[in-house]
Design a protein around this nucleic acid. Structure first.
Lengths: 355, 355
DNA sequence: TTGAAAGCGGTACCAA
DNA sequence: TTGGTACCGCTTTCAA
């Protein structure tokens, strides 16, 4: 039934196993296993022989088998609403970088911004017994997180958080995002600042709040209609930014500065302004958020708020790893990163026109 | 040692197992297993009871255990050079969509365009016993693919291929990419067409070849210096496109059309041209490749060649699944998609200026 | 220093 | 229709 290095199995051929190495060398499987994991109680001679044979046969331990007995899969699950969104792609990259070093694999799934799909993906990943989950959630309720907790799987939320939920979180301080952006527009002389806001998520709500507070603090007015809703769903984002901006352009008085929920919306807004024959930033200054890589290559390079996506990924990875290590449940940790202003032409006024 | 539904284990708490359900119901584990997999030889009554209890306990089969015995992990590995590149992100999305429906998970890793790192990632994924691998390779040699073949793991190359390797491949026909782009420039009246080429990969070489052939076929000249090398590595791409274009601008006669290896390079080229006080497309027409989502939002909306990234992902997923199903090795399949022209302002000449 | 035995959570095979 | 038994590849425990 068993040939020298291969086992017939399900009509197919299998990889080298410890058993094969042990048989070849006349030692036990346990010995091989110990060598593999650098156990101390193995004689140098035996260790050498085993290692040599492992190389020869190009042995790779079956991680599924190991997972079964250790209870650890060395895999971490990541769920994002949209992989194509550069923000999440960069987060994934940051995560991946840290995890790779520690020998962890990353199972990624995209929820397409659909709560139900996200629920399914969570179940899938839990069934795979990932050691931890990292989620940028599209949920409206916290129910799914309860199920994760039931499984005792540690999880870290990123980017978006939930009011009633005491969970680990890594993300940018969204209220500060709104504040920094608005503050910047005020600083360059804008008097009538509008906001194209995002959907009912913690990110959009936080930015909106930061915008409001800053205006209030400076005693600036928020005329009715100065806050318009944009859609952030990837493909539609720039189109909806365009529509939202056209709406703002019809107002009287017209805004002289716009803070957009994200960069795609900002791009759409830019397009609408230029199309209307107005100048950016002279007539209307525009600032986005996310600082996507190509923001500088636009018709008018777009100022933005950097969310340090890669850092979010790295911090989330480290937090997840520490949760896996720590035996007992620890108090949820919140890591808030400070947003950074990236000034480009869309808010670079050479001279501040009075009024 | 065992409580009703939980097992103390490694100082932690474990999930529900078949054993628990079997004990609760006074049936055997085998019966539970059969119900789970919809085996026919179970009485409706028993099936009901088991399913009910599964629901109650929120049972999730341990896929690691199942993998061990079936030899199938229901996971597919994806390796890309750069997750942040929209092309690969879209491929991943297309893949994910197909795989999810079939109950497969996607383990993604990024090689950062580093062959050695890619090798490690391949080993990792093989150790995890993924059922198939999908790779956009950064390798120079075909050695790593031999190792995959040794493991009898089916694999599909995407985007980039290798001359001496008979492997499954899904991608766009790069020579046709070059041809379509060049043909388009000729059609709008360009006479002196330059090319900012990419690195020594099948994609760049194919596009270069398509460019050359098309010029030759039309009897157009390729003056020395009309082919410049751009770097495609993500962050640097637009900067290198900028540099390359500046080089082209110094030539005499100056090109009146440029075909760029990819869109980021095209954006850099646009920037250089506009900065030099020239008009696009009147003085120089520009076309890129990849048709990234924001190509339309640039200073001058950039014409491009669409590579149908999502379709590549879907086709690759389906091919991989079919490879997994088919018991015996089949002849490698090559799926070449036809590139599509996406015309935007950067090549939209209102009137063709003669000469 | 080494290894026999037990078992992780499932599935396959075959007998009851 | 049901379930006993063996076993997937590896780790853990404990005795030799």
């Amino acid at each position: 039934m068993q040939s020298l290095k291969l086992t017939a199995w399900h009509n197919t051929v299998m990889a080298v196993r410890m058993k094969d190495i042990a048989r070849d060398l006349g030692v036990s499987v346990v010995t091989v296993s110990k060598v593999l994991r650098n156990h101390s109680d193995i004689s140098p001679a035996t260790r050498e022989r085993v290692l040599k044979r492992m190389k020869e046969l190009n042995y790779r331990p079956n991680l599924a088998a190991r997972a079964l007995v250790t209870g650890r899969t060395n895999m971490i699950g990541l769920i994002v609403p949209d992989l194509v969104h550069p923000f999440f792609a960069e987060v994934a990259k940051g995560l991946s970088k840290v995890l790779r070093k520690k020998g962890y694999g990353l199972v990624i799934s995209s929820s397409e911004e659909d709560p139900e799909l996200e629920q399914q993906e969570i179940d899938q990943l839990l069934a795979r017994r990932v050691d931890a989950l990292i989620i940028a959630s599209a949920q409206w309720t916290v129910e799914s997180f309860r199920r994760i907790e039931e499984m005792k799987t540690p999880y870290v939320l990123i980017d978006r958080r939930f009011a009633g939920l005491a969970a680990n979180f890594v993300g940018v301080d969204d209220e500060q995002v709104g504040a920094v952006a608005t503050e910047h527009l005020i600083e360059i002389g804008c008097q009538r600042i509008a906001h194209i806001r995002g959907p009912e998520l913690s990110t959009a709500l936080g930015r909106l709040e930061g915008y409001r507070r800053t205006l209030t603090r400076h005693g600036l007015a928020m005329p009715p209609g100065y806050i318009v809703l944009g859609k952030s769903a990837d493909d539609a984002a720039d189109a909806s930014g365009y529509q939202a901006m056209r709406q703002l352009l019809r107002l009287n008085p017209r805004p002289d500065g716009v803070f957009c929920y994200n960069d795609p919306i900002g791009m759409g807004a830019l397009k609408a302004i230029l199309e209307a024959g107005l100048r950016v930033p002279e007539d209307i200054a525009v600032i986005g958020c996310g600082n996507v890589h190509y923001a500088g290559l636009l018709r008018v390079p777009l100022s933005s708020i950097d969310q340090e996506s890669a850092t979010i990924g790295e911090r989330a990875a480290k937090l997840a790893l520490s949760l896996i290590e720590s035996k007992d449940t620890v108090r949820p940790k919140t890591i808030l990163l400070a947003p950074k202003l990236a000034v480009r032409d869309s808010t670079r006024k050479v001279a501040c026109a009075a009024k």
